[in-house]
Design a protein around this nucleic acid. Structure first.
Length: 676
RNA sequence: GGAAGCAUAGCUCAGCUGGUUCAGAGCAUCUGCCUUACAAGCAGAGGGUCCGCGGUUCGAACCCGUGUGCUUCCA
């Protein structure tokens, strides 16, 4: 449509709009300062059609040169961007809409008619005046009310605000100084940014449900803010006795408070702070320990609770905040009622058990990261519970086979190793717990139970079929099992408690849920290293067996060329059983007709009497290894010969490099000898 | 429009202070096993341009810049 320019000659400026009814509220026309088409209009005015209001033509680089005609009608009352333009250029604001969407008095025309009717009518009226240039279909984004599904019209209104600047200060400082610690820490950034650019808080809502704002109006529009209606009336009478005598009633504000305006009191209000600020519970529990919540409400709720805490009690509301992730479906969508993509928790608990559901959520919940809910994790949890149950069955089955006075020297190593692992992992897990790395903690315990305990330890101490087991080994195994269950208890409370009580008769009150973790000694690193070595040997031999098509039942003879016979002596029983070796002997020479392999710097020779052995593959593998280690030595030497590296690297890093170098050289030597 | 975050195995993700926990886990895949706790299991294996480009450093998955893609919050 065309707006007439205020000039001697008849001249128009053409403007496009999808909301023609809003022209009644126009208070300017805006063009880009660099637009040659409109440069001559500097300082000029134009007339708003129909109402014939004379408004300025303003220049602002907010305008997109390419878009439409390059000229924008500015309606500060009914568009947020126009409103900001109006503020910047000091434009008047004309609110042309009533609350019910009809045109207001201020519109000057079509008063009382619905906005959509006016939208059509005004086009006809403009056309009659010859001001319509062109009409075309146009698709644009329009907001609809979530509740009433009605098109939302931006409109100016009076609202209540809470001044935030002062309150934000101590709240920001507390988090910056880790007086209140965030987990994970990355949310500090977000918080800092928001708090240092904090805006005043619009606390009024036009809803029927909620706490009404405690403000009262008199007939002259004066406002009385008070705790109660009585107090408001008293203030009214005191200030305006004459008016109060004539009109004794005050009208309370109909707007209610934003729901967060009460929620921000939560940490103290749960202890009854409002009615009794000095009560015992509050004194004992406040400030509280840890708030667990979602990162999406860090501003709505967390920041405001912190501000309220300092504002009203002078103290922080809590010491730590743990932000969980948001559970999403497999496609990464938020779970919601309207999408219907929330899993049925009760059904899942029926199908898998409460512990398993808890497991599946915990295993995939790194703090602050969203988790995609996957049924596969339920299976993993179920399998894990089964694994522990079966381990319990195995161990419990030994109870009747316990015997005194047995020689358990062959399994002592296993027990010492497992106890050391338990101590080691337990320390790791407590560190993770302290840092709220909950999923990592669970993964660590999971691996300790499944791999260390079930796959290695139990196999190492397991008596042969129908053979008795030493009481000492049994008791220590039970003790280890108990401690594993205890570590796991926070994650799987029901299953662990159940197994704990099946493992042994318990006295009243001897429950996992109240049991304290023992103080573990510092684990012996020698034992741990020997354990890894033993595992490495077993895995290497098994791998060799598979690669050479030895059947599990084929009994082998193992010859070992080592400088560390003491170690092998200690674990002979375990080793022989784990690799199905009938014999373990020591040698210092190559064993002819055997498969040879190298573990660290020990040379192992496998003979299988009844099986024809082809060592070609084995030799090829060793040659590949040899090549790798030679390259490795070169790269390490390069580092060690680099003066800057030697000068700059930390002492332990340097030492480590030297050790790597020596180890690799020893390995090469061993490989070369084996291949000779 | 403003801001924050993410990008690592086929999938979902760990990886803290730059250097052996350094390229990992689970699932999936392949091979062999009904071995007397467990086949929902056991044993073994394969699989990677740590998104692209540039920089800092003796040294980068990690720090900085930049590009691309995605997510979220605010307006």
């Amino acid at each position: 449509m065309r707006y007439r320019i205020d000039s001697e000659t008849e001249e128009y400026i053409t403007i496009a709009t999808v909301r023609p009814e809003t022209i009644l509220g126009d208070t300017a026309v805006c063009v880009h300062p660099n637009d040659p088409r409109y440069a001559h209009l500097a300082g000029k005015f134009c007339f708003i059609p129909l109402v014939n209001r004379r408004v300025p033509i303003i220049f602002d680089d907010y305008i997109d040169l390419e878009f439409g005609t390059g000229a924008l009608k500015v309606t500060p009352a009914h568009d947020i961007n126009d409103y900001n333009l109006g503020l910047k250029h000091g434009l008047p604001v004309i609110d042309t809409l009533n609350e019910d969407g009809t045109m207001s008095e201020a519109a000057g025309l079509y008063i009382g008619q619905d906005r959509f009717a006016v939208r059509k009518q005004i086009v006809e009226d403009l056309r009659a005046l010859g001001l319509i240039v062109k009409e075309e279909d146009y698709v644009n984004q329009v907001g609809f009310s979530e509740r009433t599904d009605v098109v939302i019209e931006p409109r100016l209104s009076m609202q209540w605000w809470c001044k935030m600047q002062e309150m934000a200060k101590p709240a920001l400082e507390a988090v910056e100084a880790d007086e209140i610690a965030y987990h994970p820490i990355k949310f500090k950034n977000l918080y800092r940014h928001w708090m240092s650019n904090i805006k005043d808080w619009c606390i009024s809502r036009q809803l029927w449900w909620g706490q009404r704002i405690p403000a009262w109006y008199d007939n002259e529009g004066a406002i009385y803010v008070a705790e109660t209606a009585e107090q408001a009336h008293e203030a009214y009478k005191a200030q305006k006795p004459a008016l109060a005598a004539q009109f004794p009633e005050l009208r309370q504000e109909e707007d209610v408070l934003d729901t967060w305006f009460s929620s921000w009191l939560w940490p103290m209000e749960v202890f009854g702070w409002n009615k009794q600020p000095d009560n015992k519970d509050l004194a004992y529990y406040y400030p509280t320990q840890t708030l667990v919540t979602a990162p999406e409400i860090i501003f709505f709720w967390v920041a405001r609770m912190i501000m309220a805490g300092y504002e009203f009690t002078g103290k922080k509301p809590f010491s730590e905040v743990y932000f969980t992730g948001i559970v999403r479906d497999k496609q990464g969508r938020k779970m919601s009622k309207s999408l219907g993509n929330s899993p049925d928790l009760l059904q899942m608990i029926d199908d898998f058990g409460a512990d398993v559901v808890r497991f599946s959520v915990m295993i995939s919940s790194p703090a602050g990261n969203d988790l995609l809910f996957d049924e596969g994790q339920l299976e993993q949890g179920r399998n894990f519970c089964n694994k522990m149950w079966n381990a319990m069955k195995l161990v419990k089955g030994w109870e009747d086979r316990c015997a005194e006075g047995l020689d358990d020297s062959q399994v002592t190593f296993a027990i010492n190793w497992m106890e050391a692992r338990l101590a080691e992992v337990s320390a790791e897990v407590s560190e993770m717990m302290k840092d709220y790395r909950l999923s990592e903690g669970l993964k660590t315990i999971y691996s300790l139970v499944w791999n260390d305990f079930c796959s290695w330890y139990l196999e190492w101490v397991k008596p042969a079929q129908d053979q008795p087991i030493s009481v000492a080994v049994y008791d220590r195994t039970i003790a280890i099992f108990e401690q594993l269950l205890q570590l796991l208890h926070p994650y799987l409370p029901f299953v662990t408690e159940d197994i704990y009580h099946i493992l042994k008769d318990r006295t009243e009150g001897d429950d996992l849920i109240v049991r304290q973790l023992p103080a573990y000694p510092v684990p012996a690193s020698e034992v741990l290293k020997s354990g890894s070595l033993l595992q490495e040997i077993i895995t290497a031999v098994r791998d060799t067996r598979v690669k050479n098509q030895l059947k599990p039942k084929d009994v082998i003879k193992l010859s070992v060329d080592t400088a560390n016979q003491a170690f092998y002596t200690q674990v002979t029983g375990i080793l022989k059983r784990q690799i199905n070796a009938g014999e373990l002997v020591y040698t210092s020479a190559t064993v002819a007709g055997s498969i040879s392999l190298v573990v660290q710097t020990d040379k192992l020779y496998i003979e299988a009497p009844d099986v024809v052995i082809d060592t070609t593959n084995q030799r090829l593998q060793m040659e590949k290894d040899l090549q790798y280690y030679r390259g490795f030595v070169v790269s390490v030497e390069k580092k060690l010969l680099n003066e800057k590296f030697v000068a700059n690297a930390k002492a332990d890093v340097l030492e480590n490099e030297r050790k790597k170098h020596a180890d690799a050289l020893a390995k090469i030597k061993t490989l070369e000898e084996s291949l000779a």
